[in-house]
Every structure is written in C-alpha cells, then in structure tokens.
C-alpha cells in the first residue's frame, strides 16, 4: 500500500458517500445516471469474485464488501425507492454499446485466458468507460447539481491517484500491469473536460453548466 493508492481508495469511498448522501438528503436521484450505477455494480461484481478465495487484508476485504453493497444499494435507491425522481429520458446512453465491445476485448486482450482473469480484465475495461452514461446525461441536461459535480470530481480523482500509485509501484516495487494502467489512463482522460469545468466553475462558486 502507498499514499497514492490510499488517497485513491479514500477518494473513491468519498465519491460513493457523497452520492448516497445526495440521494438520501434530497430524497432524489435527479441528474444521476442509473446506467452508470448499473455498470459500476457489474464492475465490482466481476472484479471481486476472488473475495472469498484469496484474502489480502482486512482493509481489502471490507472495502470490496462496501463497494459491492453500496453499488447495489444505490441501484435499489434509484430504481425503487426514489424511482419517481429518476430521469430516464436523459439517461439514454445505450449500455450495450459499452458492455459488448468491452466483453469482446476482454476475451482478446488479457494476461491469462482463465475465467477469473477474463472477468477481472472485463471489469477493468468496463470501469474505464462506465462513467460515459453519466457524462452523457450531464451534457444532455446541460448542467449538474453542485453536489453531483463533487461526486464526479472525487470519482475522477480516484483513478488519477491510482495512476500515481502505479508509477510509485513501478519504481519502488517493480510491479506493473499494462492492462490496468492503459484502462486507468483512458478512464482519467474521459474526465478531463469535466475536471476543467469543475476547477474553473464549481470551485469559483458557480454552477456546473456545459456550454449548450
């Protein structure tokens, strides 16, 4: 474990807590893409299948359990409890356009042609594009609530911090995983224009609004 990975995990945890807080406080999931949340649940489900077969640490296990539980709880809130506030008209990104190509790529490009390894690879590739329905929804509505932009900033920062973690591990531990690094860079690049808007607008107290 290194400081970048710990900060990254905390940023990821913060993002999830911000989202849950926003929905619980406002009793609404307006502006949130349910499709992105479904994709995240798929990411965690396919990545943490070794949850019971390989024990790394208490921290690792509890974080995995929390990520899986919170992702399904978020879906429950969006599609059941606060269903009336779910904006399905603007959440129109076709998930199959992401899942199918990513599924094919995971079969073709992976470290080992084994079920667990292919599912892990699928999860890594899927996570890198899972935010697209959410960014698409923000661009369609043309704006996002401030708390939603904080959620997106924390979420985007987590994988950016993981990139620093991979640099650190490369130089100090000699570990390197090309698949995780490439997917992590793609994932972070997708947030770039949002990061720009967040830093130039939200941090100046303005509302996040995309140029129409």
């Amino acid at each position: 474990m290194n400081v970048f990975r710990l900060l990254g995990d905390m940023s990821h945890l913060l993002a999830i807590l911000i989202l849950l807080l926003k929905m619980w406080k406002t009793r609404s999931c307006a502006g949130i893409s349910g499709k992105t949340q479904i994709l995240f649940a798929l990411v965690f489900t396919t990545r943490y299948l070794d949850l019971f077969s390989s024990f790394i640490s208490i921290y690792n296990t509890t974080m995995k359990l929390f990520f899986i539980a919170s992702s399904y709880f978020t879906i429950f809130l969006m599609y059941s409890k606060f269903k009336a506030t779910y904006d399905s008209n603007h959440d129109s990104f076709r998930m199959e356009f992401l899942v199918v190509p990513v599924g094919g790529l995971a079969f073709l490009v992976n470290h080992e042609f084994l079920p667990l390894e292919i599912l892990w690879t699928f999860s890594i590739y899927l996570e890198s594009v899972a935010i697209l329905p959410q960014l698409f929804m923000v661009s369609k509505t043309g704006e996002a609530e401030t708390i939603t932009s904080h959620y997106l900033f924390a979420l985007g920062s987590y994988r950016l911090l993981y990139i620093f973690n991979w640099v650190y591990r490369y130089y100090f531990d000699g570990f390197f995983d090309l698949i995780a690094v490439v997917a992590g860079c793609v994932q972070t690049i997708l947030y770039c224009d949002f990061f720009y808007l967040y830093i130039t607008k939200v941090l100046k107290g303005k509302k996040l609004s995309l140029p129409a």
Partner: peptide, 10 residues
Amino acid sequence: KPWLDKKDEL
C-alpha cells in the same frame, strides 16, 4: 509475476 496471481488492488 506474483502480483497477477494475487490482485491486491481494489
């Protein structure tokens, strides 16, 4: 590579 066998990152 030992790391690939044990995925220790979240």
